[in-house]
C-alpha cells in the first residue's frame, strides 16, 4: 500500500473509532493490526483496499478539492456516511457501501481483539470498556 493510501486509511479509521479521552483507532495500533492482516488472512483483499481507499480520496477531491486526510472531522464523517449508503460522486471501481462496511469490521477487530494481534495497544480498548480488569486476569494474561 502506498504512503498516500496509508494516510487515507489512518484518517478513515480515526473516524471509525475516533479519539476522545481514549485513543482513536490509529493510536490504539489498528494500523499495525491491518498491516499484519493484509499480509496474512486478508492478503486477498489488498487490492480491494487500494482501490477503495483511492476512491475515498477521489471522493474527497471531487467534493472539496483536497485529500481526505486533510479534511475536517465533520467533512470526513459526511463523506463516509455517504459512502456507506452508496451516495458517491467519484468513480468507484468497488461497491462503496460494501467496501466501507468491510473496513469498519476490520478496524473494530483490531481495536477490540487482543493486543497480540497488533491493535488494542497495551489493552487500551479493554481498559476503556472495563474488560478483564480482575487481578486473576492481570496474572494470567501475561506472556501469551
Amino acid at each position: 500500500m502506498t504512503e498516500v493510501h496509508w494516510q487515507t486509511l489512518r484518517a478513515v479509521m480515526d473516524r471509525v473509532v475516533p479519539p476522545d479521552d481514549f485513543p482513536g483507532a490509529w493510536d490504539a495500533g489498528v494500523g499495525e493490526y491491518l498491516r499484519r492482516q493484509l499480509a496474512r488472512d486478508l492478503k486477498h483483499l489488498a487490492l480491494l483496499y487500494d482501490l477503495g481507499l483511492e476512491a475515498i480520496d477521489a471522493e474527497a477531491r471531487a467534493r472539496h478539492g483536497s485529500a481526505f486526510a486533510a479534511l475536517t472531522a465533520a467533512e470526513q464523517d459526511a463523506i463516509l456516511r455517504d459512502v456507506e449508503s452508496g451516495r458517491v460522486v467519484a468513480f468507484w471501481p468497488v461497491e462503496p457501501g460494501r467496501f466501507f462496511r468491510m473496513l469498519v469490521e476490520h478496524v473494530q477487530e483490531g481495536f477490540y481483539a487482543d493486543p497480540g494481534n497488533g491493535g488494542n495497544r497495551d489493552g487500551v480498548a479493554w481498559r476503556m470498556i472495563g474488560y478483564g480488569t480482575g487481578p486473576q486476569d492481570e496474572a494470567t494474561h501475561a506472556d501469551v
Binding site: 471509525v16 463516509l80 462496511r101 478496524v107 477490540y112 476503556m128 470498556i129
Partner: peptide, 15 residues
C-alpha cells in the same frame, strides 16, 4: 457500527 456513538456505547455498556 462506527463513529463516536459506537465507541461510547461499548464504553458505557460493556460492564
Amino acid at each position: 457500527r462506527w463513529g463516536m456513538v459506537s465507541k461510547r456505547w461499548m464504553r458505557e455498556n460493556y460492564r
